[in-house]
């Protein structure tokens, strides 16, 4: 128990991300409304972003924008330990864009489905398909 507790305390970010992934996936699979599914998908994607950003964190460091701003006075060396890991942020910028793009296309498809069937409930759509 104590191990779990300490694991939770030292890694709570990761716990949260796993929870979010599970919530998102559950919504994506179990919900019968297409928009709810889309929301679930987005939650899962956001959870992944949280995970990556968590990787980048470093205790006692600041955002990766260098202090000695205009870079020319390079005489005081930059210490990597002072700044958090920029790479996950870079990656997540990409992932955010991807999730926005996916969301856009998903919504467009949902609109198309709605135009076609007049509903976004999967059961009702299925009933219409079975009828024909």
């Amino acid at each position: 128990m104590e191990a779990i507790l300490s694991s939770f305390l030292t890694k709570y970010n990761y716990w949260v991300f796993i929870g979010l992934v599970m919530i998102g996936l559950y919504a994506l699979i179990a919900k019968r409304n297409l928009v709810k599914k889309i929301i679930g998908m987005n939650i899962a994607q956001t959870a992944v972003i949280l995970f990556y950003v968590s990787i980048g964190a470093k205790q006692g460091s600041t955002i990766p924008i260098l202090d000695s701003s205009h870079g020319h006075d390079a005489h005081h060396a930059v210490q990597a330990i002072d700044y958090i890991n920029p790479l996950p942020h870079v990656l997540m910028l990409t992932a955010i864009v991807v999730s926005v793009a996916t969301l856009g296309v998903a919504l467009a498809l949902a609109i198309k489905v709605y135009q076609q069937y007049g509903t976004l409930e999967e059961d009702e759509i299925q009933a219409q398909i079975d009828k024909t």
């Binding site: 990766p64 924008i65 260098l66 870079g71």
Partner: peptide, 12 residues
């Protein structure tokens, strides 16, 4: 290296 290579203090 980032700032030295690119003159961009924002490493991201």
């Amino acid at each position: 290296q980032g700032a030295a290579d690119t003159h961009a203090p924002n490493v991201v």
